[in-house]
Design a protein around this nucleic acid. Sequence first.
RNA 1: GGCCGAGUACCCAAGUGGCCUAAGGGAACGGAUUGCAAAUCCGUGAUUCGUGGGUUCAAAUCCCACCUCGGCCUCCA
Length: 529
Amino acid sequence: MPAVHIHNTLTGELAEIKPIAGAAGPVTFYTCGPTVYDDAHIGNFRSFLNADILRRTIELTGTPVRHVMNITDVGHMTDDTNADGGGEDKMAVAGRRLIEAKKSGKIHADVAIDANDPMAIADFYANRFLEDARLLGLKVAIEAQSDPSLMPRPTKWISQMLDMIKQLIERGHAYVASDGAVYFNVKSFADYGELSGNTLENLREGEGGRISAQHQAVKKNPGDFMLWKPDPHHVLKWDSPYGAGYPGWHLECSAMAAGLLGAEIDIHSGGEDNIFPHHECEIAQSRCAHNKPSFARLWFHTRHLIVEGEKMSKSKGNFFTARDLFAKGVTPAALRLEITRTHYRTNANFTMQGLADCQRMIDRWSRVAEALQAKVSASGGAQNSAYANSASTTSANSKPNHGAPAGPFEIALPRFTQALCEDLNMARAIAVLNEAVAVEDNSACAHREVAALHKMDSVLGVLERNKRVAASGDGDFEAKVNALIEVRAAARRNKDFAASDRARDELVSLGVQIKDGAAGTTWTRAVRG
RNA sequence: GGCCGAGUACCCAAGUGGCCUAAGGGAACGGAUUGCAAAUCCGUGAUUCGUGGGUUCAAAUCCCACCUCGGCCUCCA
């Protein structure tokens, strides 16, 4: 098996993934997950899904991965002018927004949620996130159903964070300032800036316009960042030796990564905007608290997604959440492919056209998978669904023909794997698969072919997700469509083509696309931009 | 001001010194199929890689300058 090589933000070079635990693994992998005071948008999902593609690629090469992704339910303030704490908790704002949404009917009024309870709001959005994530095939979210510890919440890790603060103060890396807050002293850590290249000298104080003079005055260095903020009035607060308050927002990942994966881990991922300050600060805290030469060996960062050539923003109307798109009839498979097929280190341009392109590719792969599976069934093999994972295709009653020559998919698999191993070259991997799809070969062993195809899909993760997400009201809609299709069929039997075309036009105006096949007419809901 | 990416056909997007007269997908066009469509299948498709210089026997790929776009510089995937 080829080794996986990935660009390491820390060194700027391609690095081979060699598990700290030894060749047998597992690779320890921590991903900075979502904050849950609103629905995640497709840009968020691009970075989560790229992490998913990476972990699946490592698994494809035979190395197990222990992947942890947090769900942040604490510690984020709205007050832009004051990044050192204070302002309003975003959960409180989210609560007000929820009340508004209920009033305006954007959310079903029967959603039972106390908008004044920050934890209820966090749970509400966390559950919506998990729904979207599972539909999109984010493996860690699927695994977390049986092992919730894989998706930890910072509110359950406060004591570990306080332990880290204690360590940092004892080792001389942190101090309690005159305003009562605990700060990390960036000058105490020589490597501060190693990840982002933002040396302390080059950081322009207040360039982002989010630092208040008041807080700067009590800090030893302008770059010092908060570890604990005493604030007895805050909506979420915990007791601590520094007064009741809440933790700094960088601390959670350091504490949870160490607690669940170890003081040193193999891979840490996030969006490019996390590089500084978040990940820089995590490195400083973790290395200083645990006295280790490194925190994560490899830093994996996904660049931002733009939409139709423009930065995604609510005001431009090009802001999409996954569920927005599912409601338009976009399949999870198409969305997953569209936002992961562009190399993770370039800005991806999300377009409705691109979504349609992906859907066509996936439909073709699905047809081929089904045809292969039909051959397997016909030869008395396993009666597994075409969507079953590759392991099941080698079940006891399948009969692979070991004498048959390697077919196009079996030949493609190592090339596909190689492409992904070279810094996740998705475009080339997809091209390899498409080339295999175009080859007609009836002499190959269908069992082995279907296994190879599903092996490739174990990374792409699209075949089992190529169906629309059902929405409420679908039943009535379906009945209406089926009635129109019957009207059209009757008209066609009578050769009344004017009438049949009228029925078809009506279906089209309902957003339905029909296909006349050998087994009658089938339909799909067209995706509307 | 500092740091970091990107500009390849109508669109998305590989390729990073010779196998490139540039992969793959979509759109478009032509053909098969169809009552007509849609879907499907087959075929066609950049002598050229943001602009201008340079290095080299050889450049989309290396160097320099410039233009354009995006990210970060203590909310952000």
